[in-house]
């Protein structure tokens, strides 16, 4: 697959290959930020405050003005074998 043909993955467009058989409940809301209207919270790198950001808004912390923001841990459940 060449670089130009790569398409950004869409919401609910199927399982990623790593999962191999886990069922995907497409009914759950999953805004990965593509469609406008979803507010995603990021964590400021300096003051650790939850910063809500929408698409195309400048990337800055509201409180301290830092420009390094981290994404929050996923809300999805992750399964592990205790081995």
């Amino acid at each position: 697959m060449s670089r130009e043909e790569y398409q950004v993955p869409n919401t609910g467009s199927g399982n990623s290959p790593a999962i191999g058989g886990g069922s995907f409940n497409a009914g759950q809301r999953d805004f990965s930020g593509e469609s406008g209207g979803g507010v995603i919270y990021y964590i400021c790198g300096d003051c650790a405050v939850r910063v809500p950001l929408e698409r195309d808004t400048p990337i800055r912390c509201q409180k301290c003005g830092a420009r390094v923001l981290y994404k929050e841990r996923t809300k999805r459940m992750v399964q592990f074998e205790a081995r």
Binding site: R73, K75, M77, V78, Q79, F80, E81, A82, R83
Partner: peptide, 26 residues
């Protein structure tokens, strides 16, 4: 009997998921 599968809903601690699961199994 021992813990075999761990379903993590949230883990914001400094212990990684897999390390935590391993510890719980033991």
């Amino acid at each position: 009997l021992a813990v075999e599968t761990v379903f993590i809903n949230n883990n914001t601690s400094v212990i990684q998921d897999e390390v935590l699961a391993h510890r719980l199994g033991l």
